[in-house]
Each structure stands twice: as structure tokens, then as C-alpha cells.
Design a protein around this nucleic acid. Sequence first.
DNA 1: TGCGCAACGTTATAATGTTGCGTTCGTTGA
DNA 2: TCAACGAACGCAACATTATAACGTTGCGCA
Lengths: 170, 170
Amino acid sequence: MALSPIQPRPCTDPDCRGQHAPDERVALAGSLCNARGAQLTKLRRQILELLWESGRPTGAYELVEALKLKTSRPVAPPTVYRTLEFLMSQSLVSKIESRNAYVPCVHPERQNDCLFFICSDCGTSVELEDPRIERLISENAAIIGYRPTRRVVEVEGVCRSCRAAGAAGK
Amino acid sequence: MALSPIQPRPCTDPDCRGQHAPDERVALAGSLCNARGAQLTKLRRQILELLWESGRPTGAYELVEALKLKTSRPVAPPTVYRTLEFLMSQSLVSKIESRNAYVPCVHPERQNDCLFFICSDCGTSVELEDPRIERLISENAAIIGYRPTRRVVEVEGVCRSCRAAGAAGK
DNA sequence: TGCGCAACGTTATAATGTTGCGTTCGTTGA
DNA sequence: TCAACGAACGCAACATTATAACGTTGCGCA
């Protein structure tokens, strides 16, 4: 059964994080895959959904655990890693290298490398784009003769609410 | 025996990579540690030296192997990891998160997070600084209310000589 | 002499990621 | 109809990266 052909709806609001339900995210992913001639199978859909539901960068083995509750049979690590690889190849998921964890992409229709902020306190992450940073990276790359293929920009810090909570706790 | 008090000599030439021998690098590290009240012990010195000699991001277990040849007794992983942690705390070494590997810092006297370019072909890395990128990251962080504590910027790509070699090989 | 501390040693194990091969299942084409 | 094929997944074993927990050494110092 084919997905209903949902048009990609890029969210131009820079503050759109968390404003769409997981189902909606997964549905968009499905139509994107369709358009690209790739298939978002049940397992892939489930894992993407788990990532959206999690709300923070999630490790591969955490997904293995979570799938035990969601599926009839347990799913082994290689399957999860293969699935993550697929989802990353479709820009539906990014890996947070500094955490060995995976997050769903807010704007999978734009196949860009993004900028991630990760709170060292609560573990949540925020995805941003900044073309100016991308441009500067490209400039620097050109100066030293590199042709970039992938950009990893991850900023660890403390988010607003955790700072507030920390200050209140004192 | 104390090290001779070598003054940190920041290399203002942006192209200074690879222009100082490992001994010179290690000597500078020693005087920096002295100045900071930290001690660059024999083991720490050896590991830093190995990293400078390696010429590319090097894994912790590679260091374990390399130390087998350099030292009388083999050194176990926890020791290497502790040493790397110390070296990172002194800004003498950075971790390349996207590779799980470690590189010595070109300018340990400037305790900045840098920008790394890693060649996916030959595995070498180049360290750069760009205050403009740092500023943009801070700006973005401020917008979403983050207080950054660490910046990871790693760019994977193909370096000039590998591109030349690749083109010549065809 | 004995205390305290930093560095290092040692054993075991946790956490993360991969290889290789087999099975299932749907499609395709003679 | 059915062999051939390929994509997706199952699975056992293994490789790699990292840490926990605890013991030992050596040095400065009261």
C-alpha cells in the first residue's frame, strides 16, 4: 500500500522544532522515500518513529532495547545499524558523533549537514542551519585544498531550561 | 630534572603545520605544563611523541600497540585513556570524534577548540582556527539560549594531494 | 615513620560497531 | 510456471572502543 502523497513542507519558521507529531514526521519521510525510489519499510519506519518519540540523541543499543517492546521478535544490532545507515543515507537521521547517538532530521527534504547543539545536562539536542558557517567552512577547505564531503558541527553546552533549573536549585 | 624553560612561541604563520619536529613540540608541551603546574611525565611524553610522529589521527589501541615497542612493559587501555584525558585537559591533544582518534594540537598555548579537516583517503588531518566560525557558533547558541562549553567541528573530505593522486591514477 | 596524594598497573567488563553468511520474499523475465 | 535475482532482514560470532573498580608505587612532608 502506497503512502498518501504528502508534499514535503519545509518549515520556514526557524523555531519549528517539536511542532510536528512523530506520525507526521514519519509520513513525510515516507513520501520523501517514495519520491526518491527508496522504501521506508516497517522496521525503518519503526526506528524512525522511536527516534522522533525519544526526543534526544539515542544510541543504537537503546533502539535495540526499545524495539524489544515494540516488535514481536527482538532485533539484533546489525539490523539496527543497517537501518540507521539507510536512514542516514536518506537524510532522515544524523549521527551525533560526540555521543555515538542518532537523531532524526528536522528538515530531511534539505539534504544539508546541520549544526547541532547538545545539552550536557538533559541530553537533548537542537538542530540548526547556518549557511554562513557552511560558507566559511567551504572557504577554509578551499584554502588548504580540501574538497569537503561531510561536515560535523556539534556544540556541547547547557540549554536554557537546564541553566534555569540549575540556578533555581541553588 | 626540570625542562629548560622554553617560551611558548605561537606560530603566526597559518601554514606552520608540520614545520616543527616532534621533539620541539614535546618540549613546548613540557614548558606549558610546567607553567600550568601540571607534570608531563614520561608516559605522557611518550604518548604525545607518538601522536606527533604518527602524522594522522591515531586510535587509543594503536597507541597501546605502539607503546609495546617503545616501553619495557605493555601498557593497558585504561592507562592510555587516562593519559589522553590528561593531554586533552591541557589542550595538548584533541579527539577527532568522527574517527574515535586523537591528534596533537598545533597550538596548545591557545586553548581553543579548532576546526579539523580529515582526508577520507589518506587519513591525515589539518587543524585550523577561524574566529569567525567561533563567533557564528556563539551567536547561534545565544539565540537558542545555549551556553557552549565545547565545539566540535570536523570536516571530512579529500585533501589536495589525494585528489591529485586520484586524478593521476585514472 | 606514617600519612596523603597523584600517577600508574591490573583485571574484568561495558558499550559500540562490523563481518559473513543464511533466509525470506517479492519481482522479473524466459 | 518457475528459475533467477536482488533487497531486506535474521543471526552468530567477532572486532573495536571505552570504562569501572580496585590495587600498587613513589614522592613530599609533618
